[in-house]
Simulated assay, not measured.
Amino acid sequence: MSQSALSKRPADAAGVARRAGPTTGERLVRAAEQSWRPLALLLAALVVWWVIAAAELIEAYLVPSPGATLDVLTSKAGYLWQHTWVTTYETLLGFAIAVVVGVLAAVVMVHSSTVERTLYPILLFAQVVPKIAIAPLFVVWLGFGIAPKILIAVLIAFFPVVISMVTGLKAVDPEMLQLSATMGAKPWQTFVKIRFPASLPHLFSGLKVAVTLAVTGAVVGEFVGANEGLGYVILQANGNLDTPMLFAGLLVMSLIGVVLFVVVEIAEKLLLPWHASRRDTSATTTF
């Protein structure tokens, strides 16, 4: 049989076997295998926490018991939810702005070496400046409203987005670009069909880092000047030596970061099913 005939054979022809996708039971088993280790580590940390509190190895006003923290989470659920929503809103808005501006900046930098050489040192300088040090300036300039918190979240989340996007756009196979140019593709067609899709795996890697940093940025802004949000809750609890509330605020803040990370992870899986790390099915020959 000729090579051309082989290339035209359908996937379900004799000699070609398509491996079926995993069943629901297999997915559950895989999820359990992937999650039992972090769950076991979390359980061990809770046990250590409980032992320290029960044995009074550390004073209760320094490290509250898990029970006292849980009691705050349940009895003050409404209060915590109100401030959690504020922090989540600031985080999401700051993250969205960072993604839009970061992607646009990366595209411009990749297509203009002059812009890249001009902007890259500035971006690096802005990244290494401690945001907690300049946050009071934003409060002075923008007031005690939501704007300073969003701005700090943008500044913290922006750098991972732009760096990952630049890396992705530059990682395209040069032969693919030469092929598209040979076939007469216009620059915007090459970007839409080749460069941008190829950069998405790198971009999502940066997004997963950026979304967790955006939570930190929003909370840092609330530390400096705010009357609502989890940063405000943590700051007030620290001033009043209310460590159960302090730990509750920290747990909720961590939960926000974990949930947003998982959301980005799910979006990556849905949008990039073609990527090698996301493939569940494959075609294999039986010759």
Results as ranks from 00 to 15, higher is better:
residue 173 D to Q: 07
residue 166 V to L: 12
residue 255 L to R: 05
residue 56 E to C: 04
residue 207 L to D: 03
residue 160 P to G: 08
residue 147 A to H: 11
residue 249 G to M: 00
residue 245 M to A: 14
residue 11 A to H: 12
residue 102 G to S: 01
residue 180 S to G: 14
residue 212 T to S: 14
residue 210 A to C: 00
residue 219 V to Y: 00
residue 32 A to K: 03
residue 199 S to F: 07
residue 96 A to R: 03
residue 87 T to F: 06
residue 231 G to D: 07
residue 100 V to Y: 01
residue 62 L to K: 11
residue 15 G to Q: 04
residue 34 Q to W: 12
residue 162 V to R: 00
residue 99 V to R: 02
residue 126 A to F: 14
residue 209 V to G: 07
residue 33 E to T: 10
residue 155 L to N: 05
residue 131 K to T: 00
residue 126 A to I: 11
residue 77 A to V: 13
residue 161 V to K: 04
residue 58 I to S: 06
residue 225 G to H: 07
residue 189 Q to N: 08
residue 184 G to R: 06
residue 71 D to M: 08
residue 148 P to Y: 03
residue 182 T to H: 12
residue 258 V to F: 14
residue 171 A to L: 09
residue 48 V to Q: 05
residue 39 L to I: 11
residue 193 K to T: 13
residue 70 L to G: 03
residue 49 W to V: 02
residue 225 G to D: 07
residue 211 V to S: 04
residue 92 L to G: 02
residue 138 F to R: 04
residue 255 L to Y: 09
residue 283 A to G: 08
residue 83 H to I: 08
residue 283 A to W: 15
residue 242 D to W: 01
residue 95 F to S: 05
residue 256 I to W: 00
residue 242 D to Y: 06
residue 127 Q to N: 10
residue 52 I to H: 02
residue 93 L to H: 06
residue 166 V to S: 01
residue 25 G to A: 11
residue 168 G to P: 03
residue 164 S to L: 00
residue 255 L to E: 10
residue 71 D to W: 11
residue 6 L to G: 04
residue 198 A to F: 02
residue 9 R to K: 13
residue 217 G to L: 00
residue 231 G to E: 02
residue 199 S to M: 05
residue 83 H to V: 09
residue 15 G to M: 06
residue 22 P to Q: 10
residue 282 S to W: 15
residue 70 L to C: 08
residue 114 T to C: 07
residue 33 E to Y: 11
residue 257 G to A: 09
residue 127 Q to I: 01
residue 240 N to E: 12
residue 266 I to L: 15
residue 206 G to S: 03
residue 134 I to M: 07
residue 236 Q to R: 14
residue 165 M to R: 04
residue 219 V to C: 01
residue 236 Q to G: 10
residue 138 F to Y: 09
residue 184 G to E: 02
residue 81 W to Y: 13
residue 139 V to F: 07
residue 75 S to E: 13
residue 190 T to A: 15
residue 54 A to K: 13
residue 28 L to D: 04
residue 213 L to C: 05
residue 219 V to T: 01
residue 150 I to Q: 04
residue 265 E to Q: 14
residue 263 V to M: 10
residue 61 Y to L: 13
